[in-house]
Every structure is written in C-alpha cells, then in structure tokens.
Amino acid sequence: MSTRVSHQRVFVSVLLLLLGAGWAANHFASLLGPLRDWQELSGVTVNAAFGIYALGLLPSLLGGGALVDRVGARGVVLTGATLAAVGNTSLLFWHDEIGVLVGRFIVGLGVGLTTSAGTVWAGQIRPNGGAVLAGIFLTSGFAVGPVFSGAIIYLIPERFSLPAAFALTVTFSLLTIALALLVGNATSPAAPRQAARARVDVPYRTLGRALAAALPMAVWVFSTVTTAVVILSARAQAGAVPALLVPGLAALLSFGSGLLIQVISRRLAWGPGAGVAGALLAGAGMGLAALGGASLPLPLFVPACMVLGCAYGLSLQQGLLDVSYLAPARSHGIAVGIFYVAAYLGFGLPVIMELLLPLAGARSPFLVLSLLALVSALIRSAQIVRTDLLVRTNIRKP
C-alpha cells in the first residue's frame, strides 16, 4: 500500500472521529425537553447539563493541544473519542439530576481532546485545508446528532427513546474508534509530527498574533448556535412542527447553514474578510433573537437560526485559518486548544440567559450581544489591515 493511500485512509478516519465527536457532544440538545419533562428536571438543571460540558472541555482542549505538540495526535484523539463514548454510556444508564451532570462533564473531557488534537492532526496530514475540513466534519456531527436524537424521541415510545438515543451515539463513536485503530497501522504515527516539523516558521507567525486574530472569531462560534438550538428552540412557536422536533430543526437549520457557508467560503476563497461577515451575521442573528423576545413565530425562528448558523460557520472557519496561518509550528496545538476554549465558552450562554431572564427580560441581553458582535467586526477589520501589511512586508524581505 502506498504511503499516499495510507495517509488518505488515516485522514478519513480522523474526519470520522471528529464527526463522531460532534454527534456525541450535541445530540443532547434534542434531549433537553424530554429530560425536563420525563425526568422532572428543572430548566436550570438541563441547561446546566448542556453547559457543564464546556467545563469538561476547557482542560482537555488546552491539555490536548499541548499533548499533541509533545507526543503526537493519534493517542490523544483516540483517548478523547473513548472518553466521549464512556460519558454517553454513563448517560444511557444514569440520567437523573446528578447523572446528566456527571455524564455531560465526561463527554466534554472526551470531545475536547478529540476536537483539539483531531483538528491539529488533520492539519498535519493535509496542511492545505485539513484544519478547515476538520471544522466542516465537526460541524456535520453537531448538525446530525440532534436530528437523529429528535427523531428517536419522536418515533420511539417514551420508555425506550432516551436509552436508544444515547446508545446510537455510543455505537457510532465506537465504530469510528475501531476504524481509526484499523487504519492507524497503515502509516507511521510519526508522519503527522514530521509534517508539522517540515513547516517553516517565518517572523510574523507568533502565538500572540494568532490568538489576537482568532479569539474575536472564537467568541461567536458556539454562542451563536447554542442560542439557536437551546434558547430559540425553547422560545419558538413552531405551529405544526411537533415540540420534540424543534431542537433538531434548529440544529439542522443552524449547523446546516454553517456547514454550507463554510463550503461556499472555501470554494470561492472569500479570504479573511469572511470573518468580518461572520461577526456581522452574529450581530444580525442576535438582533433577530431580541426582536422575537420570549416568543418567536416560525417565520422569525427559521431565518434567525440560519443567520446564527452562518455566523457560526464563518467564525469557526476563519478562526481556524487564523491559527493555521499565524501560529508557529511549535505551538500550533496549544493555539488550537486556546481557540476552542474561547469558542466553547459559548455553551455557557443558555445558563447565563436563563439566570438573566427574570432580571433583564428576554430582549435586552440579546441587544447587548448584538452590539458586541458589531465591535468584533470592527476589531477584525482593523486586524486584517495590520496582518496583511505585516505579511506583505515579510514576503518582500530577501
């Protein structure tokens, strides 16, 4: 078997692991309502279960990125995928108030390792566009997870539906792990690290510069889609759409739009200005959420989800590209980890909005977020000019 073919198979297995990680993380969105109603959990508890996942992510994203820089990506990714499967297995058998918190925390630990290390690994195997494809497959997992779980909840009797939803994502995670183990022997584990070392660092590539460009994008990655999938789906007046399917519909609209806009942006080579568009779309989406307030009719719910999804897609893609272009090879892993830490803080937004609701109402917090997104767009615009001048200056140097 040629080295090229073996690397291609490993690359596909990495993308599938990221698809499984997104599914393992986000299928829970369609289970928030059933857990609240059938298990008699409070709204704060189920939103906290959605958000505590982010607490598990924080150390594993940073630790995973740092471990990749030291020991390579393969073992870190497989460990993360296994932990995500363990967390959802725990939720399969234990989904009372304590169980959902513990299980989601374990899922967060696993998905954090898989996301950071998998993104770096994809970029190492395929330096030209690997990290962007990693984001696309991760997005695909985020999109399909709630759709499948929502369909199971709707079609299968209550007694079996929750266990079936958790069992499905565990099965898919285990299949991706098995595939990665199978094809992983076809290439040397050192190959990705060699690819990373082959990258030539230039003076304008620094960790600080990469993060200064990427972090204003990271803020609008998961804060936008959690707004759509968790907050807006709970406030939607969906009419003929069954309530159990609304979170899945929100996920399909938002993550589907995010996936489509990433593909379009990549095909048409929109460049760093797409990040400005992402921040502006985040502002527009938050503005639509504020317009709807505590009750969104379907004609407002649908475009709000799609606009927020496009903001997610462009912000994720541009943030990863910033890290890829501006971070030095020796700290690429930790840069990806820090970017994702900032991005995943958005998973805490539903809890914050739930706590602010009796104090600030349903509209005001979204208006503030809309203004902050406009500020991010201005910051991004200024950074594009500075970075472009810096890169051009270094390119012209003999």
Rank of each mutant, 00 (worst) to 15 (best):
R104H: 12
L326G: 03
P365I: 04
A373P: 01
V12D: 08
L92A: 13
R266I: 00
V132R: 12
I52V: 15
E354Y: 06
L35S: 11
P358C: 07
S370H: 03
H332W: 02
A122N: 07
A210C: 02
Q262I: 04
Q8V: 14
V144K: 01
L359H: 12
G361W: 04
S257C: 14
A196V: 08
Q194V: 07
L91T: 12
L372H: 00
S324T: 15
V351F: 10
T45K: 07
D37K: 09
L320S: 03
A85M: 12
F347K: 01
I177A: 03
Q237C: 07
G256L: 12
A251V: 09
Y344S: 07
L367Y: 04
I334G: 00
N394F: 14
V107K: 03
V120Q: 04
A21S: 15
L298R: 05
P127G: 06
L326Y: 15
L378W: 05
F222E: 05
V77K: 09
R266S: 05
L281P: 04
L374V: 11
F50R: 06
M353W: 01
S331A: 10
G273R: 03
A238H: 13
S265N: 09
I264H: 01
I379T: 08
A210M: 07
V183A: 00
Y154K: 09
D37N: 11
T226I: 13
G348D: 02
P59G: 00
G292W: 01
A213H: 12
P350W: 05
G103E: 12
A195I: 01
A311W: 06
G150R: 02
I264G: 01
V202C: 13
R386A: 12
A122H: 08
A234T: 11
F172D: 03
P272M: 04
G285P: 04
A274W: 02
G239Y: 10
L15V: 01
K397P: 01
D388C: 01
C310D: 02
A134F: 09
G278V: 06
L17V: 06
R235V: 07
G56Q: 04
A240M: 11
V385M: 05
S376H: 00
F50D: 10
V10A: 14
R70N: 05
I264Q: 00
A243N: 12
Q383L: 15
A21Y: 05
P146D: 07
G337T: 03
P398K: 14
A213M: 15
G56H: 05
F366N: 09
S315R: 04
G208N: 08
G309K: 05
A373N: 01
T89V: 13
A48D: 09
L67K: 09
A304V: 12
T82S: 14
S315Y: 08
Q383M: 13
G103R: 11
